[in-house]
Design a protein around this nucleic acid. Sequence first.
DNA 1: ACCTGAACACCGTTCAAGT
DNA 2: ACCTGAACACCGTTCAAGT
Lengths: 221, 221
Amino acid sequence: MAAGIALADRDGIESISMRKLAQELGVEAMSIYTHVRNKDDLLDGMVDAVIGQIPTTADGAGGADGADGADSAADADWATTLRQMALAARAVILTHPWAPPVIESRTAPGPATLRHIDAVLSVLRKGGFTVAQTHHALHILGSRLLGFTQDLFDDSAGSSGALDPETAAGIVSELGATLPYIAEMALAVTHQGALGGCDDDAEFQFALDFILDGLAGLQNR
Amino acid sequence: MAAGIALADRDGIESISMRKLAQELGVEAMSIYTHVRNKDDLLDGMVDAVIGQIPTTADGAGGADGADGADSAADADWATTLRQMALAARAVILTHPWAPPVIESRTAPGPATLRHIDAVLSVLRKGGFTVAQTHHALHILGSRLLGFTQDLFDDSAGSSGALDPETAAGIVSELGATLPYIAEMALAVTHQGALGGCDDDAEFQFALDFILDGLAGLQNR
DNA sequence: ACCTGAACACCGTTCAAGT
DNA sequence: ACCTGAACACCGTTCAAGT
């Protein structure tokens, strides 16, 4: 599993084949089948190993479970804990950029993934959410709990990629006729970030905080 | 493109190969390369054709652009319009269950996708959002604008799949030891839906409304 | 239990050739 | 412009065989 992760980190996910991984391990392709049912099983294992790298915030609990802390102290802190967990997950996932698409294509979660989700649920339940509210929160947070969002705009005209002001202006005037609002946003985003495109880290945190704020409101209904 | 979509609808995405698609078209595999640069280009085209199937809500504008409607009327309705657009997108996407993972794996949006995003931006801007707020909203909404979320829990113990009460109870007691909160949620979800698992449509709408509510708050800051 | 090597049924894509 | 057929360099996975 570790060899597979290292290979994907180095050469990208498309270079993960039984033959290439075997070569990396100094072994024949078929030997891998002793340890893994098939290629899908290999990917399952790699994904679960990656998620297992996310540090566990001490059972994922909300702080004071022991001595002096009143329940209300723990209650107030579920958002902070969740935020830390999501950012910790993101730090890990950024190390394995091939992982998000592979995670999304898995059909069943592995043991490390289940443990991680259980830790998240623990924080919400101890934070005062009902079971039903916790269920909704899980759907709302989605892949953000694992530290990523699948943005549809990676290469999109208005998102990433630095441009010099002149070519940017050219593109925008071309675009403006058919896609005026994309053009407008592309221009704004290009200017704002010192021509650096959009800051994915900042957007991730903004969206995460947006959701955590909303969840706080969910509780009091 | 249409043949590719039809084949994927019928036999699943893993059965999309140049050779099989060619056979479906009564032609040799290499003939397809006259119309498409390579397989990735084929998938790009299929995805963009699917997104092109989402009905356009009359320029995606916020209702009254003509006679009597004051601007404030249009302003109040951006959330309703966005909601309709997302549900329309979802109706289309449910027809092509292979599409979400393929959409997520695209690196650049096609023309139909760009038009759709532009329509969404139009609604937000006309609804009174600043360019910066609109940009944030796009990141927050993510793939929900295209009618799907990549849930991590498709097969997960507590999500889908109907179980009879006895086996459910058995699984829960096994699970309870190591994954108490997943067990708790699995049990609750199984009971609530007449043993039917979790209602993805309802969860999608709940999460969508949750976000739209939050965006309304974003405006007044 | 773990590894090997040959083989099978596939892939995407090239190239030269046809109409 | 569009299609063909052979070929190349790969795949995942089987099976029988070894240690």
